[in-house]
């Protein structure tokens, strides 16, 4: 057992998987010698050599497209896009090939590849460095998308992603890379892709979130502890394929549903979750489902970020309102 940050857990997992499986390779812009701009891959090149851990030209389509080729020919590439906002030049490869090669070839070729991307705001970064683009991946058949919110899940989900024979997008909530530590078992384990986690059971309101927002959500609930509201909290963990069952079962119990996310509102993952709650728990609802999201605006520069991302206070207010709705 080691006590690790989320970032540390990712680094540890990459090292463990590279040790266990010679076909795992790690690459991206500055991911080799320097260990990435966030140092997620620090130390790996020194340990595993330049063939298996390397810097690439600054070319996202090249990184992802070459990764697809490597995966087809026997490697398990774990590629890094430096910030998710920069994945657009590579989106062609993600949508056209990574997601489709299995279907196109009727299973002759698969793409066992992990595409890691730090995502989300709250780190006072430049333009294009703070996006939450879950929907753009969840909307594409053939892709899986996971987002850990704890060091434990960071390891379990990454291990599962590397072992998966299909492509997995692995979003890293960079705001909480080093926010807190948690005990992480040394031995290998997986967290099932497609399975949400009930963080805490409750009977009045169901709140679903993921990634960095999970932390604000939990703090909000903590701030409400004297209000006598019993909140069931679910960490979605996998965005695609979505575990609607866990969410729907919870709402059947509570009758009230709130989803909190950092991405913009329209066609966000919250919209999909509410649709599924409506389909699965319509007659159990005691209040209209609520989305607490960023507004439909371009991510502002750092001075405006606090207007963009919902905070603990707003989450607490929304939970209270929902719980008291009659």
């Amino acid at each position: 057992m080691a006590t690790l940050t989320l970032l540390g857990a990712i680094n540890h997992t990459l090292e463990q998987q590279m040790e266990k499986d010679k076909s795992v390779v790690v690459f991206g812009e500055d991911a080799g010698f320097e260990g990435g701009v966030f140092r997620v891959t620090a130390g790996l090149q020194k340990k595993f050599g330049k063939d298996r851990v390397f810097d690439t030209p600054i070319a996202e389509a090249g990184i992802i497209g070459a990764g697809v080729g490597m995966a087809i020919n026997g490697l398990r590439p774990v590629a890094e896009i430096q910030f998710s906002g920069f994945m657009f030049p590579g989106y062609n490869q993600i949508a056209m090939h990574m997601a489709r090669m299995r279907n196109r070839s009727r299973g002759k070729y698969s793409v066992p590849m992990v595409l890691r991307m730090p995502y989300g705001g709250g780190v006072r970064a430049l333009e294009h460095h703070s996006e939450s683009l879950e929907t753009l991946f969840a909307h594409i058949p053939g892709l899986k998308l996971v987002i850990p919110s704890t060091p434990y899940d960071a390891k379990g989900l990454l291990t599962a992603a590397i072992k998966d024979n299909d492509p997995v997008i692995y979003f890293e909530p960079k705001k909480i890379y080093r926010a807190f530590k948690q005990e992480v078992p040394e031995e290998e384990y997986t967290v099932e892709i497609g399975k949400a986690r009930v963080v805490q059971e409750g009977s009045d309101v169901t709140v679903v979130s993921w990634g960095a927002m999970m932390r604000d959500t939990l703090k909000a609930i903590e701030s409400l502890k004297d209000e006598g509201i019993s909140v069931e909290v679910i960490d979605l963990r996998t965005i695609a394929p979505m575990d609607s069952e866990t969410v729907v079962e919870s709402v059947k119990k509570t009758g009230r549903f709130l989803v909190v996310h950092e991405a913009v509102k329209t066609l966000g993952i919250g919209a999909e979750l509410i649709s599924r709650v409506n389909e699965g728990a319509f007659f159990h609802l005691e209040a209209q489902p609520v989305r607490l999201t960023s507004p439909d605006i371009t991510v502002p520069l750092p001075k405006g970020e606090h207007h963009h991302i919902v905070d603990q206070k707003r989450i607490a207010q929304a939970i209270k309102k929902l719980a008291n709705f009659e």
């Binding site: 497209g65 990764g67 697809v68 080729g69 490597m70 087809i72 020919n73 026997g74 490697l75």
Partner: peptide, 11 residues
């Protein structure tokens, strides 16, 4: 072309 580069890298 990128797929070819990746397949060749793996080879």
């Amino acid at each position: 072309v990128n797929h070819a580069a990746g397949i060749a890298y793996a080879s």
